[in-house]
Amino acid sequence: MIKHVYENPRTHLAITLGVWKALLLREAVSRISAGRAAWAWLLVEPVIHIAFMIVIFTVVRMRAVGGIETGAWLIAGLMSFFMFKRAGTQARNALNANSTLFAYRQVKPVDTVLMRALLEGFLSIIITVIVCIGALFFNINVAPDDPLTVFVAFFGLWLIGIGYGLILSVITTLVSEIGKVIDIAMTPIYMVSGVIFPLANLPVSFRKVLLLNPLAHGVEAARMGVSSYYHVIPELDIAYLYECGLGSIFLGLALHRYFETKLIMR
């Protein structure tokens, strides 16, 4: 009697892929075309940040850090850190921004988080390339000596961004106060990751503590890829970056699985 209903049910994989495509396109539209010249702001934010830092370093007449030009050192550090931060922040806010879409059974909270992180990863790479080309006009050479290492560093930082987004999206939905604490903690994290000061200048005992932070490894690895002359810190461990990235993604997926129904409830 109701046989026609199940004529050709889609597989779970087909549904998920359909949802991912729809979400990715939806996010891309609102990220790039929503508001006045939204795409321009994607670029303006990192450019202003970099320009500001370069001015400060010029004022203190620091022309080279760890054997490479200050401009290149800053751009490599900032853009790699942004890879983590942008993917992480966007992914973390995915549940709030997409709560109306959970009216469709097919859309799971974890889908929105993953697709936001994927889109932001794409955008960050495009922006990084544009910034590096733009830097050439100011005689700052950021063309990497070892592109593969740069890619490995960026990819690892992106993985940590996904893990951060997955974990924090669950925690901030369940306990909103924690989100505020993490926002406050973000600036110190930026400082201790060695984005705007060289970790190599610190005493070894102190540096060991800071290098528990996987972001510091990613940022240093990106610089190492940009210039083969860079005096990289001896403790650099790219495997640690990936262990933390995959570990946090695993934990984040587990949290999403465990709290799935609570995330959808209003």
């Binding site: 359909g18 949802v19 495509k21 396109l25 939806r26 009216a103």
Partner: peptide, 19 residues
């Protein structure tokens, strides 16, 4: 419910078709 306020009717319709 199920409508994304910042997107147009057509964009919402496309989204629902895709999922």
């Amino acid at each position: 419910g199920g409508l994304q306020m910042s997107l147009t009717g057509r964009q919402n319709a496309k989204f629902v078709c895709r999922i």
